[in-house]
Design a protein around this nucleic acid. Structure first.
Length: 920
RNA sequence: GCCCGGAUGGCGGAAUUGGUAGACGCGCUGGACUCAAAAUCCAGUAUCCCUUAAAGAUGUGCGGGUUCGAUUCCCGCUCUGGGCACCA
């Protein structure tokens, strides 16, 4: 019988589906293990060879854990709401639901071919009403909650109103927006609308005005993590800053917990570091400066991490968007300020970042330094951000490079505060040195001066310690069609939740998917987008809404009473292993943690962190081929000759290129424009240049996994992708070497079959054969736990060489089980041929037993400090006492022990033994 | 600018965390089988000196250091990948 992978793979994929082999159920008698992949967005391009990398890695782990006796939950689904389907809908008029359904079908087909052990009964799609009902539910829960800073947890909004009735705004310490203090009596006297406006400032999901990233090309706002270098992540369109009223999630309330929780997670340091930077904790102080403008006086609060430098403040700066700008613009400067603000508004986010030019305008008002009493001017400048701290700063040009640049440009004084610091050409930013020119701080080091200054300020009642976080609240509305509708309607201008019983609130029918002519979101086109006669919210939720709690829904996907039942949640708890890319570090992985912590606060889930261990798979890049066109002509020149011409590079589909040689005829036929192209060849061939780029449809460098499945089989694809190198590493796709793993599988097969002869016997294995087997068992166990799959496969190849011609059942049966996580189809086939009727999934991972022989010799005898040290090579794990016995019984090694005692034995399992002998 | 990570043969990558560097695979060279090819199997394959071998020397980006012993630890560089970027 030959190894016919096409037949074998089809047969077992069908069998697994028919028997629901991978179905998982709550079973308190068994220990659970939850392995999750980041679910894909089903794009029109289908899967490419990069997608399965992480899926294969997690599948191997899931299968391994099953062999180890765990009850494994390993689900899959689709992140089905999103921009591409909507853009396609705008162009073609096709409903995004239809596009999505077709793409999902194709993804499923491709996934099925690779032999994943997903429990498809738990499949979910974020665009499915039965699913997004719970996204809407969670939103309403956030809308109905506030964050208690004292208890550090979310609480129902009813408890807040109760507190207001008793003690007014002073009764709570809450995470909130700008609120004017009020008494209990005032609260009771407020109108419904006034109360609603105040509560809105406290809700965890709230509607508020803020400066947002507005992308005119997409016609929507974007979250910070969806903007890269001033352009939208999807589509690369320019982004502007704009003040708008939007739904937001008060993620900032959880900043401290999001930061602190990282310490308990088994994630890579680099990923945790990214989140730490994103959360951006900084310790400092808030300080009040008196400011005067046109005779009026105000108290203005600023934030600084360098309270020690107050004596060097020579001016103050406001962000252009700051609320203080209006109050502090003196009538004399009104025109200049307005002109400046208009200038700033016109710039895109990109221009604002790129232009390193220092800009600003004097407001005409002055502030008083609370420590020196000196009057300093107040300026308005772009380099101060409205969203951080209080949107206003004290400027110390001597010790802050940005303030320094500003002072130089506008000729403002610079007062050095650190002994010996030369500030004639640049500022001295380092937090070191001895203070001077600083009154009571003189003589202290900077490290001493910072707390001393804050202590003093607190005592004087002009400021207080304060921890600031960089993380902003997440903008939660999108002016789009293809997303979850908000279950909110406006009753007399008051945002009111649609009752839970009315959920899911489904998307309405509309005739076109683009925004209305007057700039309203697409939902405004719907005929009757109302609830009980009142208008419904017309924006929809962003992409991350649906992916924030999907891992919880997998635990109990068909429950129509709750997101997840307490029983299912208590059992599956949280994700034990999560596999996905780093690109979600500051998006999905922050939002999910926030969402989960919120549900935890309200008692809906039992773990406060969703993903215990996380592995980042590296991207598989594509190798893009380039042809060089002579500028202004239709003549293309072979890569070796392009230096002789002025050329521009054109991407060529990989399918037309082999070994960097392009099929010229295929290129001519590819697009009509190329039909009359001319080519300058070298040695009769057209050679392409190449570059390693992201694998993408637009780069024509996509390699489809189906191709590999057809030519080599899914098992080879799985083995090969894992053999390429460490999972975390990014690597360009190439099929060099795929023959090697394919050969390995064929060899494996030949242990069982010689043409039509089944070779397996019941003969007892030799000691050497057992040794080879157990070496592999030990290695595989250890490597899989460390996600080092490439070395496991190497170990397999070594074992196979050592076991050549060994067709003994006692060896082959464990071998098949060991192979099953990697090459499940072949393993299943061979396992059944060995006489088993059930799936290899239900087998147990073979027990490891150290098999060793004392056939080893001394490697490095060295004398030093009167001691002898030597190293032995052994074949397997030995205990220190076994080593000593072995050493004594060996004629060669025994002589090193003569006249001494063994002081220390260091054993490295499997190979090296380090023995230290002390003379007695 | 700041914060992480990486650098090992012709290539992808090992080295069990201080113990024979280059496992395993690819590629290449030679051989067996074959009319031939494919497939399969066997041997060789870091560099230098050398006809070859033995033997030797060199060798993990560069320069120092610690150690009996360093790809591994420490100090100083170079290059490179990634993240953040006016965060006061």
């Amino acid at each position: 019988m030959d190894y016919n992978f096409i037949e074998i793979e089809r047969k077992w994929q069908q069998w697994w589906a028919d028997n629901k082999t991978y179905k998982a159920e709550v079973d308190p008698s068994r220990e659970k293990y939850y392995v999750l992949d980041m679910f894909p967005y089903p794009s029109g391009a289908g899967l490419h060879v990069g997608h399965p990398l992480g899926y294969i890695a997690s599948d191997i782990f899931a299968r391994y854990k099953r062999l180890k006796g765990f009850n494994v939950l390993h689900p899959m689904g689709y992140d089905a709401f999103g921009l591409p389907a909507e853009q396609y809908a705008i162009q073609t008029g096709q409903h995004p639901e239809k596009t999505t359904r077709e793409n999902v079908a194709r993804y499923r087909e491709q996934l099925d071919r690779i032999g994943f052990s997903f429990d498809w009964d738990r499949e979910l799609r974020t665009s499915d009403p039965d699913y997004f009902k719970w996204t809407q539910w969670a939103f309403l829960k956030m809308f109905g909650s506030w964050y208690d800073n004292a208890l550090q947890k979310a609480r129902p909004i009813e408890e807040l109103t109760a507190a207001f009735e008793k003690g007014g705004s002073a009764a709570v310490n809450a995470a909130c927006g700008e609120v004017r203090p009020f008494t209990a009596g005032e609260w009771k006297a407020f109108s419904e609308k006034e109360k609603a406006d105040i509560l809105m400032q406290y809700r965890l999901a709230y509607q508020g005005e803020s400066t947002v990233n507005w992308c005119p090309a997409l016609g929507t706002v974007l979250a910070n993590d969806e903007v890269k270098d001033g352009f939208s992540e999807r589509g690369g369109h320019p982004v502007f800053q704009k003040k708008m009223t939007q739904w937001q999630l008060r993620v900032s309330a959880y900043a401290a917990r999001l930061l602190e929780g990282l310490d308990r997670l088994d994630w890579t340091e680099s990923l945790k570091e990214m989140q730490r930077n994103w959360i951006g904790r900084s310790e400092g102080a808030e300080m009040v400066f008196k400011v005067r403008c046109d005779g009026a006086e105000y108290d203005m609060t600023i934030f600084t991490t360098r309270a020690d430098t107050v004596f060097g403040v020579t001016f103050m700066v406001l962000a252009p968007e700051s609320e203080w700008v209006e109050k502090l613009t003196a009538s004399s400067q009104k025109e200049a300020v307005e002109a400046y603000l208009a200038e700033v508004k016109k710039k895109t986010e990109r221009e604002r970042m790129a232009a390193k030019a220092v800009t600003g305008v004097f407001s005409g008002s002055y502030a008083v330094n609370p420590l020196t009493g000196a009057e300093v001017p107040v300026w308005i400048a772009e380099y101060v951000l409205a969203g951080y701290g209080t949107g206003a700063i004290m400027a110390v040009p001597a010790h802050d490079s940005r303030d320094y640049a500003f002072a130089k440009k506008f000729n403002l004084p610079i007062i050095p505060l650190i002994e010996g610091a030369d500030v004639s050409t640049e500022s001295f930013d380092a937090k070191e040195g001895i203070m001077c020119n600083s009154g009571f701080l003189n003589g202290m080091t900077v490290r001493q001066a910072i707390p001393a200054a804050i202590d003093y300020i607190e005592k004087q009642g002009i400021g207080r310690r304060k921890v600031n976080y960089r993380i902003r609240d997440a903008i939660f509305s999108r002016q789009r069609f293809w997303g979850e509708p908000f279950p909110i309607y406006f009753k007399d201008g008051i945002a009111t939740p649609v009752p839970f019983e009315a959920l899911p609130l489904q998307l309405p029918e509309i005739d076109q998917y683009k925004p209305t002519e007057d700039g309203q979101p697409p939902l405004a086109r719907a005929k009757d987008w109302t609830y009980e006669g009142y208008p419904l919210e017309t924006s929809t939720m962003p992409g991350f809404a649906g992916s924030s709690a999907y891992y919880l829904r997998y635990m109990d996907p068909h429950n129509d009473k709750a997101l997840v039942s307490p029983e299912a949640n208590q059992y599956w708890r949280s994700v034990d292993l999560y596999v996905g890319g780093t690109e979600h570090a500051t998006g999905h992985l922050i939002y999910s943690r926030f969402w989960n912590k919120f549900l935890y606060d309200l008692g809906y889930v039992c773990e406060d962190e969703p993903f215990r261990k996380l592995i980042n798979q590296g991207m598989i890049q594509g190798r893009t081929s380039y042809a060089y066109r002579i500028t202004g002509t239709k003549t293309y020149v072979s890569a070796g000759l392009k230096g002789q011409y002025e050329t521009s590079a054109v991407r060529v589909p990989v399918s037309m290129v082999r070994n960097d040689r392009m099929d010229v005829e295929a290129f001519r036929k590819w697009i009509p424009e190329n039909a009359d192209a001319e080519f300058i060849l070298e040695n009769g061939e057209f050679v392409c240049g190449w570059a390693i780029e992201k694998m993408s449809k637009t780069f024509f460098n996509v390699v489809n996994p189906d191709e590999i499945c057809n030519n080599y089989g899914a098992d080879t694809l799985r083995l090969y992708e894992m053999f390429l190198g460490p999972i975390e590493q990014a690597k360009p796709w190439s099929t060099d070497g795929i023959d090697g793993v394919n050969r390995f599988l064929k060899k494996f097969w030949r242990l069982f079959w010689d043409r039509d002869t089944f070779l397996v016997t019941d003969e007892a294995p030799t000691r050497a054969e057992l040794k080879a087997l157990h070496k592999l068992i030990g290695k595989e166990q250890e490597d899989i736990e460390h996600f080092s799959y490439n070395t496991t496969i190497s170990a397999f190849m070594i074992a196979l060489n050592e076991l050549q011609g060994c067709s003994k059942r006692a060896v082959l049966e464990p071998l098949v089980i060991l192979l099953s996580p990697f090459a499940p189809h072949m393993a299943e086939e061979l396992y059944h041929q060995l006489g088993h009727a059930d799936s290899v999934v239900w087998a147990s991972f073979p027990a490891y037993k150290a098999e060793y022989t004392v056939d080893d010799s001394v490697k490095y005898p060295v004398s030093f400090n009167g001691k002898t040290r030597f190293v032995l090579e052994v074949s397997a794990s030995l205990t220190p006492s076994e080593v000593e016995a072995a050493v004594r019984s060996d004629a060669q090694t025994a002589k090193y022990l003569a006249g001494g005692t063994v002081a220390k034995v260091i054993v490295v399992p499997g190979r090296i033994v380090n023995v230290v002998v002390k003379p007695s």
